[in-house]
Write a protein that binds this DNA or RNA. Structure first.
Lengths: 234, 234
DNA sequence: AAGTGGTCTAGACCACGAA
DNA sequence: TCGTGGTCTAGACCACTTG
C-alpha cells in the first residue's frame, strides 16, 4: 500500500534512527524478519528502511551475521545545494550584491572559457555574502530561451529559486569541475583578500530532470572560508 | 532465485544498456511490465535494473509517463579509487618513489596537522608518477596495529592493495577534505613545478566496512595535471 | 545446523500523465 | 479513462556467518 502521505520506509527509518541512537557502537540491531513482524510490514520494506540508514552511515551490514551500529561519522553524503541553502545550514545569513548583468548575443563569448554557443544567454556576475562577509564570487550563464526576461527579476534572490518558481526549471543534478587557482587583482578586491591567495574555482553545469542543461556557472571561493568535504564509496 | 553468479539485475542492466545505445535521446524505452514479461522476470527486478541505468545517467523516469533515454553526460559518479586505479583509467603507467618511511611513536606527532593519537603509526612519504611525470606527493599514516611490519613491504606498490591482500584490510569508504594551497619549495622541487603554483591538498581518512579507520593520508596534486570532476544530485 | 542477510517472484493497489 | 511508474506484501530459496 502506498497510500500514506509519507513512504512507509521513511517512517520506519526515522523510528529506527531514534532506537539506534540509544545503542552502543558495533551493537547488533534486531534482524530483518523480527523488525518486519514487529512493525507489521514486509521484509522488503524493512530492507529499504535499513538501506536508508546505511546511506546515512548509521549502520553497516554483514551478510550472514546481521546489521550493526556504525561508528559516528562527521561527513555526510554530498548533496546538491544552492548557496542560499548552504548558508542556512551553516547558520549564516545569506545576501547578494549584483555586480553586472547583461544579455550576450550569438557567437559572442565570454573570457571565462565557458563559451556561449549559438544562443543568446544572460551573464550575471554576483558577489555572495555570509553574515555580510564576501564568501563567493559567481558568474552565471542562463540561456534566454530557458528564462526570458530573467534580467528584470530581483537577482539578489536565489537564482535556483527564481528558476524553479518563475520558470518551472528545477535543477535536479549538476556536474562540477573543481580547480585550484590563485586569485587575480579584480577578484581579490571583491573578496577583500590579498592578491595571489589560494582559492577554488568551481565550474558547474546544472541539469533538469530530463538531463537538459539549465545553467552554467563559475564560482570562486576563498580557501580560508570554505571546506570541501565529501564521502566516497567503493 | 539468486543462484546465478552475477545478479540478474546486473545482467539485465547490461542488456538494456546496449539496447538503449541504439535509441535517440528522449526516446521512450519499453514499459516495466513489458520488459518484465520479455525477460521472464518480475517487475521488481526490472526496476532494480532500471535504477542502475538511472544512476549511470543513461535514462530518466517520469512518473505516469515512462522512462526515456537521457542526453549523454560526460561525468560519472564519484567512486573510491586508488592512485593506481586512477592512472589505469587515464591510460597512464603508474609508478612510485618512496621518499621516506618510519615508525612514529606515541604522542609524537607530525607537522602535517594529521595528528597521531596515542598509538604508534607508520608515516610514509611517496611521490607518485604517471608516465614518469610526478603527479602527486603523498603522506600516508597507518597504525602499526593495523598493519604490523608494513614498513618492510614493497612500498612502491599500491598501499590499498597491500592492505587488502596482506592484512585483510579493505578500504570501503573514505572521507576527503579538499583544500587549495600554494606549494612550498620542498614540494615544488619534488613535483618539478615553480614554487608558488596553485595546487590541491586532499586529506583523506579511509575506513573498512565496519567503519573503523584504516588509513589517513595527505596528497598534494598540481593544478595543471588533475581534474576534480563529480556529479551531484538533489 | 541454525540463523542471518541477499535476491527474486507474482500480484496488488496507489499516484500521476496523457489523450 | 487508461497506461505508466511508485510502493508494498507474503513467501521462496540462496549465500554466508556462527556456534
Amino acid at each position: 500500500m502506498a497510500k500514506e502521505e509519507v513512504r512507509k520506509q521513511f517512517r520506519l527509518a526515522d523510528l529506527l534512527r531514534s532506537e539506534i541512537s540509544d545503542l552502543a557502537v558495533n551493537e547488533p540491531i534486531p534482524g530483518e524478519r523480527a523488525l518486519a513482524e514487529r512493525f507489521g510490514t514486509s521484509r522488503v520494506t524493512i530492507r529499504q528502511a535499513l538501506a536508508l540508514l546505511q546511506d546515512d552511515g548509521l549502520i553497516y551490514t554483514v551478510h550472514g551475521a546481521g546489521s550493526f551500529v556504525a561508528p559516528p561519522r562527521v561527513i555526510k553524503q554530498m548533496k546538491l545545494l544552492s548557496f542560499t541553502q548552504e548558508m542556512k545550514i551553516k547558520g549564516l545569513k545569506a545576501s547578494t550584491k549584483v555586480i553586472s548583468s547583461k544579455l550576450i548575443e550569438d557567437d559572442e563569448h565570454a573570457t571565462d572559457d565557458f563559451i556561449v554557443v549559438g544562443e543568446p544567454a544572460y551573464r550575471i556576475e554576483r558577489l555572495r555574502f555570509g553574515n555580510l562577509e564576501p564568501l563567493s564570487f559567481e558568474i552565471t550563464y542562463i540561456n534566454q530561451s530557458i528564462a526570458p526576461d530573467l534580467i528584470d527579476r530581483d537577482l539578489t534572490k536565489s537564482l535556483y529559486h527564481i528558476l524553479e518558481t518563475e520558470y518551472g526549471q528545477e535543477v535536479f543534478s549538476a556536474d562540477e569541475h573543481l580547480l585550484p587557482i590563485i586569485v587575480d587583482s579584480r577578484i581579490a578586491k571583491f573578496m577583500k583578500i590579498p592578491e595571489g591567495s589560494a582559492a577554488i574555482r568551481i565550474q558547474r553545469t546544472g541539469y533538469n530532470i530530463r538531463g537538459e542543461e539549465v545553467e552554467r556557472s563559475i564560482s570562486i571561493r576563498q580557501a580560508t572560508r570554505w571546506d570541501f568535504k565529501y564521502s566516497i564509496r567503493i
